[in-house]
Design a protein around this nucleic acid. Structure first.
Lengths: 117, 117
DNA sequence: TGAATTGATCGTATATTTACGATAAAAGAA
DNA sequence: TTCTTTTATCGTAAATATACGATCAATTCA
């Protein structure tokens, strides 16, 4: 891949794709759920919950932070993370914008169409 | 990465992560929108719209198909793709399940918190 | 039949992601 | 000050993703 072409699309598609990439690993979804559940949101707690090494968890936290979905504060020797509700709202907005363009599904719930054309 | 640990999480998190991975490239979002807009859904049309080579578009279509978000039928010499509404519904369900666990955002719209803890 | 069209797949190059251990940096405790 | 705790970062290895041209297989057209 000489160079990426991700910039050559509409900004909304790029933004949604970036959020989607941040959610594209179950560990990061688990981190978001953990941050939502707990008031305490210290990195070490997440490390205990997930089946991953500390450095790997730190890397996932960085991905979520760079996507804007979480933010982190230094609290003495430890780092305290929390969800950024504004980003989730923006993500929700982008996702619903996509869904709104999709075909109705009421007539064929949970099933695939027989054919396309 | 000696081996992936994606399987060591809850199935719902794995499923949502897989859908998110399929949406994690703006080209694939553009493809979904195109399929939604047009009745005709032939591969060649998508190639004309996107700034990508035919083989690359075919690769993206394969990713979307393997994620279940689209399906494809052979139509003579061409391939006709369409959206799979059932998968979109499942994705929507999983995403809303995640959102439902997230903190309320009404009090702080579009803004970041001052701090976490 | 032979030529053209269509799209999947192969091969390849490069970039990014995932995972870990080791280490460094910062702050608190002794 | 020194030791401990905590977490980010570095280095590394392997896997996966992205992009392209070339080619192959299937079908249609002449």
């Amino acid at each position: 891949m000489a160079f990426s072409k991700k910039d050559q699309f509409h900004p909304r598609e790029g933004d949604l794709a970036r959020y989607a990439a941040a959610l594209a690993h179950p560990a990061r979804i688990a981190i978001l759920k953990t941050l939502a559940q707990r008031k305490e949101c210290v990195c070490g707690e997440i490390v205990e919950i997930l089946p991953l090494a500390q450095s790997t968890v730190s890397q996932h936290l960085k991905v979520l932070k760079q996507a804007g979905l979480i933010q982190g504060d230094v609290e003495g020797p430890r780092s305290c993370y929390c969800i950024n509700p504004g980003a989730l709202e923006r993500l929700s907005e982008l996702f619903h914008g996509l869904l709104a363009e999709m075909p109705e599904t009421k007539g064929n719930p949970h099933g695939k169409r027989k054919s396309c054309c």
